[in-house]
Write a protein that binds this DNA or RNA. Sequence first.
DNA 1: CTTGGCACTCAATGGTCACGAGTGCCAGAT
DNA 2: ATCTGGCACTCGTGACCATTGAGTGCCAAG
Lengths: 338, 338
Amino acid sequence: MLSERRLEVLRAIVQDYVGTEEPVGSKALTERHKLGVSPATVRNDMAALEDEGFIAQPHTSAGRIPTDKGYRLFVDRLAEVKPLSTPERRAIQNFLDGAVDLDDVVARTVRLLAQLTRQVAVVQYPSLRRSTVRHVELLALAPARIMLVLITNTGRVEQRVIDCPAPVGEHNLADLRARLNSRVAGRRFKDVPELVQDLPEAFEQEERGTVSTVLATLLETLVEETEERLLIGGTANLTRFGHDFPLTIRPVLEALEEQVVLLKLLGETKDSEMTVRIGHENAHEGLNSTSVVAVGYGSGDEAVAKLGVVGPTRMDYPGTMGAVRAVARYVGQILAES
Amino acid sequence: MLSERRLEVLRAIVQDYVGTEEPVGSKALTERHKLGVSPATVRNDMAALEDEGFIAQPHTSAGRIPTDKGYRLFVDRLAEVKPLSTPERRAIQNFLDGAVDLDDVVARTVRLLAQLTRQVAVVQYPSLRRSTVRHVELLALAPARIMLVLITNTGRVEQRVIDCPAPVGEHNLADLRARLNSRVAGRRFKDVPELVQDLPEAFEQEERGTVSTVLATLLETLVEETEERLLIGGTANLTRFGHDFPLTIRPVLEALEEQVVLLKLLGETKDSEMTVRIGHENAHEGLNSTSVVAVGYGSGDEAVAKLGVVGPTRMDYPGTMGAVRAVARYVGQILAES
DNA sequence: CTTGGCACTCAATGGTCACGAGTGCCAGAT
DNA sequence: ATCTGGCACTCGTGACCATTGAGTGCCAAG
């Protein structure tokens, strides 16, 4: 078991290392933190911490740096989420309030988060899965060609062009539109399939082909989770990563371009709780030297999507977590208003 | 004036340097290209080329590398756009044909371009400016709240929520929708303001406020060029940039994040003609060590947007230009079909 | 105008050395 | 039982230096 002071030493090491980016030795520690003990004592503690795997030394005659395990302990037991300052909060609100559009909200959020944390920000568009249908619109583009427009309660719009088996009249289209909306408007996506199941039966024989096609496309759009989009920003902050650049940065950039990877990454986190994944805790290999701080955000009590940041394992966890949490809250508010 | 052979020497230097990424000396040149003259002769030519500012040496006892001016001459007079191989063409077509959606087309295009050129790809969404209106939809979200959905001929969808001064009935809304569409459907954006100018007059006094508000929002959406979106990809290729990493890559990443910068960059290029901007020809400082190859693409004869790549000035210009041109053509075809 | 020869420059490479930050361990103090 | 001061040891870092070799500019001869 680790004594209270040893934990204190670990905290000091993490803080110093995050600040200086350089391995921290026993002497420097006693100077910069009032631990009330001598360097020699700290050395013993450090040896113990190293035995337990919380810190390591890059080479024999160097100071210690925290390991992934060390950061984990730090985050779990030694760190408090640091609330933002009032001016910061105000700035966030001002900045987000200027958004005109869902796209704009997401774009602003990603910028904000990147600026605030000085790291790479990732924001997922409000997911279709947990959304409800606000409206379904059907437009005749040509006699046998329809455009389906799906509008969600989060303001998101999806559209599909449908080629129908037979020409469809404007009147019938209006009928279908009305029936469709009366059934699904305001409903959750997951309930839609059941709600429209028997809809074709309400139409004449020759219309059914078209109705089925439209419904099929609608359902397809609903389940198309692969289409979940996200936006990333602040990649320029990657240059502050480390000294041994190209090797570290390359796989990270590659991982960031693989939307699939990122979506999985965000998907693995608990809904509303903030999740911190440190170094090798990330499944994707390219992100083994990064940490991910993510949290869900939503218009109500339930999360509709995730947002977070990706940064070096050596990051200011309390500050980052504070910023992520604050931004998530404000975005939730904005979404609730619109 | 430069003799034929000197141009040949310049071409050889560019080709070698692009291949090896290392300054090229007179001896290596004579070995790898059959110039039919001795190294000493080449040295004289190189001295002349250096006097004219086409090449430079990083330090005294090193080979030469092309300057921006040298690349410019190379692109203008010494290089042919290199057509893609048939398998490559087929691969492009297959890949793009799989797209289901405008978003998907753009996403696939950016991936494709990045992969093909192994550089950073930038694709602008089909611009609203040159598009035509396919359909305008008005949906009642609440008694005094309307959603305006604008669908363009390129498949792009824009939406806005409008708060009306007074509640509006479903019937009146349908009327407005019908009148609006009969006037603007199929028309070019730039013609729309004139076409709807007198529309409020067709309505009763108490409706006019709403009609005006809707029209104002529509016009605003049309001119909102700042909203022009674009997608970038292949940033991981930046790691192949040079040896002196952080310094070079940082400003580029920053520039790429500034959508405004990129839009201006693409905007400066001629419409359908391929444009190559080399090094300092780029207005933005962060891109001074990069070249931009861009071209317009469109569904018909006229360009609706631009796409291109950003790479080191030391790039394979003929190959890059070939890839950019080919991709632009295929994307144009895809857009024309849908 | 081309060519071979020659002296010169200068980045890169690798070896040596002194320095110093940091460690582990131990004996003595608390 | 724990802390502390002292001490020998390790090893990365940076300075200095010599060597090497690619590449150049210039010149005199073909």
